[in-house]
Design a binder for these strands. Structure first.
Lengths: 329, 329
DNA sequence: TTGTAGGCGTTATCAG
DNA sequence: CTGATAACGCCTACAA
């Protein structure tokens, strides 16, 4: 690997031009004749010369790299929600000519510093931070206090015009209402700790008192969905509709139900949340709330690019959420 | 953002020490007293001083960044196979203190140059390349010719000790055999163009002639799985077992079958490939070939790290594949 | 243990 | 349009 790359000086000498000319030809900046530019580009290919990025980033103070920070549980389960956001982020980043560096942040590791560092040390031009953990808060603080452009992806809350948000409360309300409309009376909610808004919206939509809704608060994986079902089957066999805080939970729940010959949706109507791509191909296909993750990701990059070009964002962006009715409820 | 960060000189001056001392304190290299190191670290936190990465990478010629190149179809469908590999890559990269930069490469874009550039311009210390496209071939050539450490993830083939491989042919053979053992007689194969080995293994395992197996060659998405089923239902309603080239196809196929009241596995035994996390939670749970993607990703990084530390790899690494029998076949 | 000083490869500025 | 040259911020011999 210590193939000692040729540098601009040597390369320029080789062609009998100045380093400045080489730089201009290859960077596309500054006045230069088409002819020499073409010549130099051709020669660069021939000799395999490329400007050393580090030198160039150093000089220009531009990293051309965006950071994507997302919460990651320490499990082998992929987080499909994040995956789909990342799909959009990626696509938009490429379109904007930016590189993407990804930072899964796990609360259990307990240490934001590596991430904070990357924000502070100049390696990132901007950051996209998916909210949802204590750490994301710290990151946002770091980005904020250092004036680094950043976008937060998260459910609606007080902070910041930089946010790209979705309205979990409304989504859950939609589900609650729907359950009410189809005449379900004994609702449950299966989810994690962090979804207060979903819980509230759900209860509102159901038009019931909070005490009349069963809350099973646990994790967010297939596995939790399954165990939630098993628990509920014993404790509350009368439950006739369930909102799961995400599609993965819903799938775990349904899978467990089917294996006990509980019919979905006849016996229990089950709704998910997120509308991951898989949702429509599950069997039964998932009734769920679409958060339009890919769009969420795309929009975040677009907004970040605006920030980078000096624009000021006047208000957070809200991406709509929709209830998608399929087979499971 | 043009908060003009403090630089080492100013910072050193502020503390009344030399830049060298600061550098030593913060980089952890070179002799320095514990006392001054602690002092400087504390002050660095206080003033928010961090070494400019670009300057330091420039100086040391170390990027500390790994690149992950993977084929990406231009669809909104996430590629779960890749996602799970990435999970392992990520985990191992973090463990090794490396940053990860990801490069989805789409054949349709027709342009490897941006990726080649990142390999050639020094921004990457090493690369992990998932084989499977024309472009990955070009990338490998680029990495090879420039002596950049790289690992290829791919199914078994001639090239290179750098590979982390899995044996698609064997996996498919396992499925073929299994179908034969359970007495299925009229097999089909649903998949993409690139899976010659799978096809071959499947036919071998079935112990049939190639002409007696129906091949439906198309894409690799949920959607393709569905249309494959619809096509086969009309053209070959006698088919009683199907190997799909990946789990996503299998899910699309099964979903379509169930919606036509075709029973899985009673009427048609369906096997997938990859054993994505979801496979066990689908309903029916997927019988499939596990490629151990997470491990694949982890191993790749580990091998790359060996390469980076100067070791020479003497032979490619083979990750086992196993037939996982669940409900769909 | 600490300080001094040179140079890494580019790009931008300023002449020509 | 092109060439010479001075930074950019850090690390690392080498000297003290």
């Amino acid at each position: 690997m210590d193939n000692k790359r040729i540098n601009i000086k040597e390369f320029a000498q080789l062609l009998g031009v100045s380093t400045a000319t080489v730089s201009r030809a290859l960077s596309g900046k500054g006045r230069i004749s088409e002819k020499t530019r073409a010549m130099i580009k051709a020669k660069a290919d021939e000799f395999g010369y490329r400007a050393n990025v580090h030198a160039s980033k150093f000089r220009t103070r531009q990293s051309n790299t965006l950071g994507f920070f997302y919460p990651s549980i320490d499990s082998e389960d992929p987080d499909y929600f994040i995956t789909e956001i990342m799909l959009g982020v990626n696509e938009a980043a490429i379109k904007s000519g930016k590189n993407l560096q990804i930072f899964p942040i796990s609360d259990s590791s307990g240490n934001v510093d590596p991430f904070k560092d990357s924000i502070l040390n100049g390696s990132l031009e901007g950051a996209i931070i998916v909210a949802g953990t204590k750490m994301s808060g710290e990151l946002i603080d770091a980005a904020e206090s250092w004036g680094i452009p950043y976008i937060v992806i998260g459910s609606i809350r007080g902070g910041g015009n930089n946010a790209v948000t979705f309205d979990n409360e409304r989504g859950a309300r939609l589900v609650g209402k729907y359950f009410r409309n189809i005449g379900r009376k004994r609702p449950a909610y299966v989810g994690g700790f962090l979804d207060k808004r979903k819980k509230r919206g759900y209860v509102e939509g159901l038009g019931m008192r909070e005490e009349d809704v069963l809350f099973d608060i646990g994790g967010c994986s297939f596995h939790h969905g399954r165990t939630a079902f098993e628990r509920l089957l014993i404790e509350r066999p009368d439950i006739d509709c369930v909102l799961c805080a995400n599609d993965v939970l819903a799938i775990g729940y349904i899978k467990a139900a089917l294996s006990k010959s509980v019919r979905i949706p006849e016996d229990i109507a089950v709704a998910g949340f997120d509308d991951i791509k898989l949702a429509r191909f599950y069997s039964p296909a998932l009734t769920t709330v679409s958060l339009h993750e890919v769009e969420l990701g795309r929009k975040s990059v677009e907004r970040l690019m605006k920030l980078l070009s000096g624009e000021t964002l006047m208000e957070p962006e809200l991406v709509n959420c929709d209830l998608i009715i399929r087979e499971s409820a």
